[in-house]
């Protein structure tokens, strides 16, 4: 199912992981080992963002941050973005992060 994300412009790779750290599947222009690393990184990053969002909500006393819906790290040429247990690597010049995030959300809901 996550393979369909590769059809989107700019998407170089996608991976799916479980909350216990298990790699589920990954596809794209990346060796298997790197897809595993991408999934591992995404899980760690998800937990970190979750922890920081919890604190922001706790200290700011405002709801609306948690639970976080996902995250995007934007570099000069490439971005990594994630929703739920899916992560994608996107070429900034070729794709739209808005579109990728929307599709990630939809695929994650299946």
């Amino acid at each position: 199912m996550i393979k369909r994300l590769l059809v989107l412009d700019g998407v170089m790779a996608v991976a799916k992981f479980r909350d216990d750290g298990e790699f589920v599947e990954g596809y794209g222009m990346m060796p298997d080992e790197e897809l595993h690393r991408l999934a591992h990184f995404a899980l760690d990053y998800k937990r970190m963002v979750q922890g920081n969002a919890d604190q922001l909500a706790m200290f700011g006393q405002i709801n609306g941050w948690t639970p976080p819906g996902g995250w995007i790290v934007r570099g000069p040429a490439m971005s990594v973005c994630s929703v739920s247990n899916l992560v994608a690597v996107v070429n900034n010049g070729e794709g739209s992060l808005t579109e990728v995030m929307r599709e990630l959300k939809e695929v994650a809901s299946y």
């Binding site: 937990r47 970190m48 922890g51």
Partner: peptide, 9 residues
């Protein structure tokens, strides 16, 4: 707990 998770990552 949040910082510890970050440090481990």
């Amino acid at each position: 707990r949040a910082t510890t998770m970050g440090v481990h990552m």
